[in-house]
Amino acid sequence: MATKTPKKSTKKSSAAPKKAASRTTDKDELLGYYRDMLLIRRFEERAGQLYGMGQIAGFCHLYIGQEAVVTGCKAAMKDGDQMITGYRDHGHMLALDMDPKGVMAELTGRATGYSKGKGGSMHMFSTEKKFYGGHGIVGAQVPIGAGLAFANQYLENKAVSLAFFGDGASNQGQVYEAFNMAKLWNLPVIFVIENNQYAMGTSVQRASAETELFKRGISFEIEGKLVDGMDVLAVRDAAAEAIEHARSGKGPMILEMKTYRYRGHSMSDPAKYRSRDEVTKARDETDPIDAVKKRILTEKWASEDDLKEIDKAIKATVKDSADFAIESPEPDPSELWTDVLIEVD
């Protein structure tokens, strides 16, 4: 068999990550990201714990390790911009300032949850915060996200939609149908591929003929970029550029965020498909929160003690949300019959 010729990147898609330490930021900005990412991590750790205690049931997909992706993207969004993702969605909701209490209460299936306890981990929404789910079917959020962008273009409201999906979803047929129409009509949508390197238990290499996912838009003339998804500032800059591109009417862009999830695919995944060493290495060498912490300390924007205070405050917030979620009542039985259809007189 002939040797595979290495493919060259075209000008439409490029992989040239800048060095993180050189990116512009300031004290308030970086401390903000530190807080936001730490909230997601502590929240997810607690969710994992509640799952173990039987308070959370069903499927529960944790975002631990991937915090920089959504935090950096959120930083680049403006008021009115929308987010939609799959079922690994807790981080997205927290990044959009949805109330951790409401999210946790939904995880525990309580009346005070964002979906009154009727959606669960994978199905939460906040039209107020422009979060459009929370979708349980792999890849479904991609055409829906393009549809949000379609509405934005139609309504001329200048908003951009960000559709997040994983490396697994990137092999779904409907993703390419959406790519085609998004570019055909130059819809203001950013396709954010969170490549955490495993589609459930199958590595990208074992599932994808083309493993450089940012190139997946080439045949649709959609520009793609490879981004270090463990570097919140790299994510911020790439997202800002892409959002500007879409907002200015130039159509969609693809951002492949190279990232890593520390936990299993879901809570019921023993993660036997990868070695403990691989996970430890990612944690030790590329952790997005550690990287931010390091720069804060190097720049002397805060001391170890200051950061401990932040950590303590976040732990308290998360504990409050867990208490709230456990203490809240289950939905009233009458809720079984509500929200099936909107009543028409």
Partner: peptide, 8 residues
């Protein structure tokens, strides 16, 4: 609509 508790 149902999964969003009536929001969407």
């Amino acid at each position: 609509l149902y999964m969003s508790g009536g929001q969407m």
